[in-house]
Design a protein around this nucleic acid. Sequence first.
DNA 1: TATAAACGTTTACGTAACGTCAATGTAAAG
DNA 2: CTTTACATTGACGTTACGTAAACGTTTATA
Lengths: 253, 253
Amino acid sequence: MEYTVQQLAKLAGVTSRTLRYYDEIGLLKPARVNASGYRIYGQKEVDRLQQILFYRELGVDLETIKQIIMSPSFDDVQALKQHREKLLAERRRLEALIANVEKTLLAKEGRIIMSDKEKFEAFKQQLIDENERNYGKEIREKYGEEQVNKANEKVKNMTQAQYEEVTKLGEEVLRVLHEAFLTGDPAGELAQKAADLHRQWLGYFWDHYSKEAHAGLAQMYVDDERFKAYYDQKQPGTAEFFREAIFIYTGKK
Amino acid sequence: MEYTVQQLAKLAGVTSRTLRYYDEIGLLKPARVNASGYRIYGQKEVDRLQQILFYRELGVDLETIKQIIMSPSFDDVQALKQHREKLLAERRRLEALIANVEKTLLAKEGRIIMSDKEKFEAFKQQLIDENERNYGKEIREKYGEEQVNKANEKVKNMTQAQYEEVTKLGEEVLRVLHEAFLTGDPAGELAQKAADLHRQWLGYFWDHYSKEAHAGLAQMYVDDERFKAYYDQKQPGTAEFFREAIFIYTGKK
DNA sequence: TATAAACGTTTACGTAACGTCAATGTAAAG
DNA sequence: CTTTACATTGACGTTACGTAAACGTTTATA
């Protein structure tokens, strides 16, 4: 059983361009090329294509599919689990978008005109909403409704200048933290400075500070993959390092 | 209030590249360009950018945002509604993908357990039990106690390697069968290959092969809804097609 | 005041997975 | 022998920027 591109394409329900592309990226090479330069596919390639399309149906990207089917040692279950996580994250993102669009539609239908002041308010509200969406449940569980509501109130009452300050401070925390990470010493001067900046930063969100809450947050930075991803983005292990630094800073552990 | 790219970027939480890009596509032009060619943004542009970012947060594409904010006559509510439809469709697609990935993972994890030596024995037993539960009565009626017991013995004595072989062979039967189904010819090369692979597969369960029994089993694949569902899962009519192929293969009918 | 740091500019390639020409050669059908 | 169908490679377009190169400008500092 031998097929040219078009024949195989028809058989598998893809276009010939797709087959050429798969050849190009080395995902599916034809069995041979005839004298005229035509791609000729055999039974083995048909089977292989079917595997490829199976994973493609699941939304797996071609590079990952390549690894799965090229190397038999590759852990396909692991790959699929990772893929599932990506899909779940994407769904969460979509749900947040949908909720926001719906909220906006409600607002628009109620009141068409937004003043400048309202626009800025909306912007701050958006910051709060985003936080709620991403971390709301866990934070509310951990710190209680009241605390979270107070924090949100605090953000709402920020002036534009304060808003800029908190943004800058947040960046500085990250900068100092990464520098501290290079020293490797969570008790060192730099790491402690990062922890202190972080305390200041929290001042913009918490209406009163406590060492226990600070330490608890540090633990969450390690436990929750989304926080961890944020702090580890430049150097893996940064979240853990930061937690140690904050534990020392707060005298906990 | 005048800003250079970097200043506005920091204020709005985007990169300067983004602002240059928005300039390039005509989404947000600077108020003016100074003698050195620097982009200078004013208050109007700040407001405009905030609008842009608002819609961007909702996942609206830049081209649509452009229309919304450039022409005051543009129906933004309508645009948002359309956008919502797109998001909902995307979510549906994601749900389907997730369901599929999870189904695949369940199946795959089953196989992982199988390859674990300790649980392997238990698994073989389970296979036998399951078979007994589902088809035991009919099979025993059709082929007699002794045959069935022999078959079960054979499964119990399988090595792990054999078990994997039979699993792979079973998958291949399905693959070839579906391809054959597309040709529509149960007497064709592919269909006959599927029947032959099926005979080999039976070799792992039956202690001796007979054409009569093979043809009988093929009939059962059509008669029993559970078998039928298994073979028809991709294309309805496959079970009947397979029966025809096996009838031809065994010279029955 | 010299120089380095920080910031600005334009140009252009890379991303994922193909769709869609364009220019051209080959095979099959009438 | 011509038309038609199919094959090839090459290259651009898609989205919203990230990243880097090569180079000019402003600002801070020694």
